[in-house]
Design a protein around this nucleic acid. Structure first.
Lengths: 105, 105
DNA sequence: TGACTATATGAGCAATTACTCATATAGTGT
DNA sequence: ACACTATATGAGTAATTGCTCATATAGTCA
């Protein structure tokens, strides 16, 4: 079934919209990594990490390939970092203008 | 409690990561709108739309103010459109390189 | 072959999300 | 006051998400 443009965008954004996946992507800024390096570094359960990586690969944000026992990952599209930077900027402004904070209590 | 940078980014992205909220934002590109204009245009239930708008306002993506009975909305931070464009570009590439499609069946 | 390492995945669970219906709240205009 | 309009929210529900534990799969090396 055909997906709408809005669904396609929402799917990419959903894949990015988790703190651990944000951390994973930022860690992959350092270059190619395998699960066995990411998991201890970010303190994530092996099976949990495996599922996060699957989401990132399925959305074409990350590329993976086998290297012996390991599966290596690298960023497929550097534009994700622009998205993360913009999200940070929006969050920053939102906090500064108190817009998002009033609900907090 | 203090939120991490990763949580802040993920929260902004979560607010954007829904097809209907993407549609709402794109509709708000046309200028200031109230619920009563958005709901029929996008064919959304009144209560459902109200909750989507709350999410966008809470994250500081949209600003709202009362005008008599109505509540008006406008984009608070135009950078959301950059995010949406980047997400579309990533989705496009992902589809073209078949990276994301192989799982589909 | 067997022991070991790295990753994937089934099952179960708690929490969250998106939605709808019904109702409450708030402002308008008679 | 009353009827009316616009929005918000409580309650209930189905689907999804993120997590963990246990197990399966796949590759390495003695």
């Amino acid at each position: 079934m055909q997906k709408t443009q809005e669904e396609l965008k929402a799917n990419i954004l959903s894949a990015l919209a988790h703190p651990n996946r944000v951390r994973i992507l930022e860690f992959l800024k350092n270059g190619v990594k395998c699960n066995c390096e990411i998991a201890p570094k970010l303190d994530l359960e092996q099976s949990n990490l495996s599922r996060h990586m699957k989401i990132l690969v399925q959305q074409g944000i990350v590329i993976s390939w086998k290297d012996g026992l390991r599966v290596n990952y690298k960023i497929a599209d550097e534009r994700v970092f622009k998205i993360l930077d913009l999200a940070a900027a929006i969050a920053k402004r939102s906090i500064e203008t108190q817009a998002g904070v009033l609900e907090e209590v």
